[in-house]
Amino acid sequence: MTGMKEGAGENPFAEDPDPTASETEKETNATDTETSTETETESTMSSSSESQQSQRQSMQIPYKFRRDGVQDGRDRVPLFLQPETKRAERDALRELEKRFDDDVSLTDLREGLMMVGLDHLDEVEEQLEEWGHGMTFDT
């Protein structure tokens, strides 16, 4: 036995020995259409992918929501504050919590203050001068 029953229909594994010209044309047209459709699909997918990637970049999740805790992604640095600075920090924390109508972590506040200070070095320089930086005692 050959594995196929007689009269069971066509052998799906058999090759067509002599395809007619019209069948060849149909196959060629079908292949061209498939290739054209695939190219259009790839082009659409590529532009869609680029669009989604640019949206992801512009819609980055804020640090507060992508971290596991306030210390996540931060280096520990010692911070020693004078009493008046500590009071001002506490007042600033309360004020910002009112503005956000939400809790603000002291760690976030401190880093926010640091980042703003880094953008305003002239004002930081003035504060440091008040504390005596830049003074010389040459006679």
Rank of each mutant, 00 (worst) to 15 (best):
G3V: 01
M4T: 10
M4S: 08
E6I: 03
E6L: 10
A8M: 10
G9C: 04
G9Q: 03
P12Y: 02
F13R: 07
A14Y: 02
D18Q: 08
S22Y: 02
T24W: 07
E25D: 11
K26L: 04
K26F: 07
N29V: 07
A30T: 07
T31Y: 10
T31E: 09
D32L: 15
S36F: 11
E38I: 06
E40K: 13
E42H: 11
E42C: 03
M45A: 14
S46T: 10
Q52N: 10
Q52A: 09
Q53A: 15
Q53R: 14
R56E: 08
Q57R: 15
S58P: 00
S58Y: 03
M59F: 07
P62T: 02
K64R: 14
R67E: 01
V70F: 00
V70G: 00
D72F: 04
D75F: 05
D75H: 10
R76F: 05
R76A: 11
V77L: 12
F80S: 13
L81N: 05
K86R: 15
A88G: 02
A88K: 12
R90T: 08
L93S: 01
R94S: 11
R94C: 03
E95N: 05
L96V: 02
V104H: 00
S105V: 01
L106F: 06
T107F: 01
T107I: 10
D108I: 00
G112P: 00
G112Y: 04
L113H: 01
L113I: 13
L113P: 00
M114C: 12
M115K: 13
V116N: 08
L118R: 15
H120T: 05
H120E: 12
V124I: 15
V124S: 04
E126H: 13
L128V: 01
E130N: 10
E130V: 06
W131G: 14
G134M: 04
T136Q: 09
